[in-house]
Design a protein around this nucleic acid. Structure first.
Lengths: 201, 201
DNA sequence: GCAGTTCCATTCCGATCGGTACAGAACGCT
DNA sequence: AGCGTTCTGTACCGATCGGAATGGAACTGC
């Protein structure tokens, strides 16, 4: 890893890489990949373009790092939800987490994964593919978790893990779009309540 | 209207405005507002930039016309769904229509309204606002329809039309994102089946 | 002090963005 | 034919895009 250089030779960096990445992530979060220009990014990061180029490579690699950071930060609820004891609890934690992250007051509205995935010209193709892959992974993990729930007797043996996962993901995406459109968290929690009726009253 | 000029003075236009608009709509549909460049658009339309400028004004006005055409064409299912006899039938027609339009084989995947709404820099603000307004209108019409269903005894009087409308819209948006990500129509129809359980078995 | 290394800031690159000036071509009218 | 009008094609506009070259500043090790 290029950032594992604790060697202290040469002029020391005058900015904090983690802090700059955090700020870049937020810009991508609210503007998407192509909507975020290098000027937008570096201005928010408080550094110049050559500094960002030296530290992260290029815009696409910066985006990859930002997505990774998003997954471990605001998007961490997805991983946590998988550890809930029952299928219904998994789904509820997943959707409540989605509502919380996409409507968090101090953060950009919406979801980086959804925001950056749509509406791209030719230059945004790699970013779109990256996010599509990530969403696919999440879907697979959810499906796998629901499959386990069947073996644990937590879901009926004729339940379809794939369907349940796709339904849950679809709800989360819809929530992200609604949040980006300005819907409040409470209203989206109502939506989650309705969605959860699929698991029984 | 500037296109109501049937006057035949001057050199006649060598392209069909409706056909050009249709092609432009499809480009916006798959690339969003900012993702569609003038070169992309005019190439698909088969005309040059000055011709497009003379016929439509500018990119933003072309987009407005394209959105209008989308609403009357591929997005017409929304209006039709409102005419269904029961609330549940309305919701089902709405969601099946969303699946159909967003996964139609010959057309771009996804929904223009969702595709163009997210991921915008500064230049895409007006387009984003236009689409947000349209989605808001649709939500309001759906809510109004569900309210009518209560007075008609079709929904229990303690039902919440706002919640039902938001839930339906959220599902439709999620469907659009999934479709843009490549999910097949059959898989999304499964999702719709699950969503409709909210209205009873 | 000096060499070697790394970072910062200015400046610039070719390509592309949305939009336009201009000249000529194609029409109806007289 | 000649005119006014409107469309088309070329060539171009300033601004901005992502990216990079360059020169000096800041540091460690010798």
């Amino acid at each position: 890893m290029s950032d594992a250089r604790n060697a202290v030779i040469g002029r020391p960096r005058e900015f904090d890489v983690d802090d700059a990445l955090e700020r870049a992530m937020r810009v991508f979060w609210e503007r998407g990949y192509e909507g975020a220009s290098l000027v937008d990014l570096t201005t928010a990061m408080g550094i110049t373009k050559p500094s960002m180029y030296a530290a992260f490579g290029n815009k696409e690699q910066l985006f990859r790092r930002a997505v990774q950071r998003y997954a471990e930060g605001p998007g961490h609820y997805a991983k946590l939800a998988l550890e809930e004891p029952t299928a219904r609890a998994v789904a509820e934690a997943f959707l409540r987490g989605a509502v919380g992250t996409t409507t968090s007051p101090g953060d950009p509205a919406g979801c980086l994964s959804v925001q950056g995935a749509l509406a791209s010209g030719d230059g945004g193709r790699p970013a779109r593919d990256l996010l599509a892959g990530w969403r696919n992974d999440t879907n697979r993990q959810l499906e796998e978790r629901f499959r386990r729930a069947i073996t644990e007797g937590d879901l009926p043996h004729d339940a379809d893990p794939g369907r349940l996962a796709r339904f849950t993901m679809t709800m989360a995406f819809g929530i992200a779009v609604q949040a980006a459109g300005g819907l409040r968290g409470e209203q989206l929690d109502d939506v989650v309540d309705m969605a959860l009726r699929t698991w029984g009253p």
